[in-house]
Structure formats: C-alpha cells, structure tokens
C-alpha cells in the first residue's frame, strides 16, 4: 500500500469559486453551515463529488482546518471524494429490505455490472462501487424509510419497490439503453 500522493494545490475555476463564495455567504454563522456548504458544493459538481481543490477552497474561506474538513467528508455517507457514475443505483440495506432479500439484489447487480467485490477498507455499509467505464455507481443506503415497499432500490432518484433480481436487471438495462442513445 502506498500513501496518497501530495494533493496538487490549486484553486477551483472562477465560476466554481463564485458559486462557493455565494453558498458560504448565505450560510455563515448558521448552525450546521459546514454540512450545508459541502452538500451544496457537491451537488453543484457535475460528477457529484468533492475534489480536493474545492475542499481547500472551502477550508480557506470558512477558516476550517483541512483535517477537520477531511474528517467530516469521510465521516458522513453522503459525501463522495470520487467522481460518481452517470447513473447511481442505491440498494437499500434496511431491515425490512434485508428480510426480503436485498442482499441477493446487491450481489446479482454487482455481477450484472461486472464489478469486483468491495475491498475490506471502507466498510460494508458505506459501499460505493463505480464501473470502470464510469457509467454506473452502486451504493447502499442504511434505510430509505420505504420499508413497506421492501426490497427497495433507487435508480437515479426514482424509487422502485418490491423488486426482484429479474426486474432490477430490466431496470438497469433500461438505463443502459438510455446511455446508448
């Protein structure tokens, strides 16, 4: 294992900076502002992640230590430090979904997309796997609170309930088709 290489210092482009400045101006001094700023900046990123230049910029502007920013972004499941796929598929691993077979869904989806098993580091619950071509990201979520629809999968923000392996494969195929067009 090697250490991550030193992060190249650099500023996000001016447009991004302006956006971040705006978000910070709106939220400074309010409780929960750091989470809100990070959420907004990530959402603004086309690949839905926080890159290190953004993190450095936010740290400098909010006077937050870099290590604290990094701690926060790796603590909460919502933040990504890696670019996300074109399509994001969330598999709910809540109790009701588990009792109704969500593990099989996760396994078959992983096989279907040809993704290798998650490495040990990172933990089983914070699973985030992206296909090498960047088309799909599979994630798990602790619980969507859609337990009556168990097992539940969210495909690009659309909730699909009562899924079985075949129906999920069909949904994923539909997304693939979309990709080709």
């Amino acid at each position: 294992m090697t250490l991550p290489t030193a992060v190249t210092p650099g500023k996000p482009d001016p447009e991004k900076c302006a956006f971040i400045d705006g978000v910070i101006a709106r939220s400074t001094g309010r409780p929960g502002s750091l989470l809100g700023i990070l959420e907004a900046v990530q959402e603004n990123n086309p690949r839905k992640y926080l890159c290190s230049s953004e993190l450095r910029y936010i740290a400098a502007k909010t006077n937050t230590p870099l290590s604290q920013i990094f701690s926060v972004t790796t603590f909460y499941a919502l933040f990504n430090l890696e670019p996300q796929g074109d399509h994001t598929i969330y598999i709910c691993r809540g109790t009701a979904c588990h009792a109704r077979g969500s593990r099989n869904l996760l396994e078959s989806l992983r096989l279907d997309l040809g993704i290798k098993e998650a490495p040990d580091e990172g933990g089983a619950d914070k699973l985030t796997l992206t296909t090498p071509d960047g088309k799909f990201t599979i994630r798990t979520v602790a619980c969507f609170g859609q337990c009556a629809l168990a097992p539940v999968v969210e495909l690009d923000h659309r909730i699909c309930g009562h899924l079985n392996e075949r129906a999920l494969a069909r949904e994923v195929d539909a997304l693939r088709q979309e990709n080709h067009q």
Binding site: G32, G36, L38, A77, A142
Partner: peptide, 27 residues
C-alpha cells in the same frame, strides 16, 4: 432553521447531532 443531515446513523444520538451542527464529524 432546517439542517440536512449527511448520512450518519449515530447523529440520532443527541451529542453527535450537536457535534454535527457545529461542523464536526458526528462523534
């Protein structure tokens, strides 16, 4: 005010929730 949590079950614990509101990891 509304604050959106960012996906940490432990923030249901009140002191972790407060840490989270203060801009720290929810420990």
């Amino acid at each position: 005010e509304l604050v959106e949590g960012a996906g940490a079950f432990v923030c249901g614990e009140e002191t972790a929730l407060i840490a989270s509101l203060e801009g720290f990891s929810g420990r």
